[in-house]
């Protein structure tokens, strides 16, 4: 992996973040620096090391299958940028 091979346009698309050409250029430069620094991790031999996903190891944290009250309908929609007929409105979804 080359430190600076980040395709900012592609990754920004994956992340659904619109960038101006200027932002794209600055972003590339800054990320290249950070990725260069991160390369440091390659110095370490991590063979046989288990990855840590959780700082406190626990298993089987589950909840009982019990129904609790939902939000009142008005509260559920209170923050909606656009709504109609009890639905959250979005631009037409086309696959």
């Amino acid at each position: 992996m080359a430190a600076t091979d980040i395709d900012v346009k592609y990754v920004a698309h994956l992340a659904r973040i619109g960038l101006t050409p200027d932002e794209e250029a600055t972003m590339s430069a800054r990320l290249a620096g950070i990725l260069g620094y991160i390369e440091k991790l390659k110095e370490l031999d991590v063979t046989g090391v288990e990855p840590t996903a959780h700082a406190v190891p626990m298993v089987n944290v589950l909840r009982p299958d019990v129904v609790c009250p939902s939000l009142p309908h008005e509260a559920a929609l209170a923050n909606a940028p656009a709504q109609a007929n009890g639905l959250f409105l979005v631009p037409k979804i086309v696959e």
Binding site: R63, D65, V66, V67, C68, P69, S70, L71, H73, A76, L77, N85, G86, L87, F88
Partner: peptide, 27 residues
């Protein structure tokens, strides 16, 4: 066919009026 949803206590039931079986978690 559980009684409640996967991560929250909202009812897992078909046919309710839109957005009436929602909470902060499932929204």
């Amino acid at each position: 066919n559980t009684k409640s949803k996967m991560w929250c206590g909202c009812a897992n039931a078909y046919g309710a009026a839109p957005n009436t079986q929602v909470c902060p978690v499932c929204l």
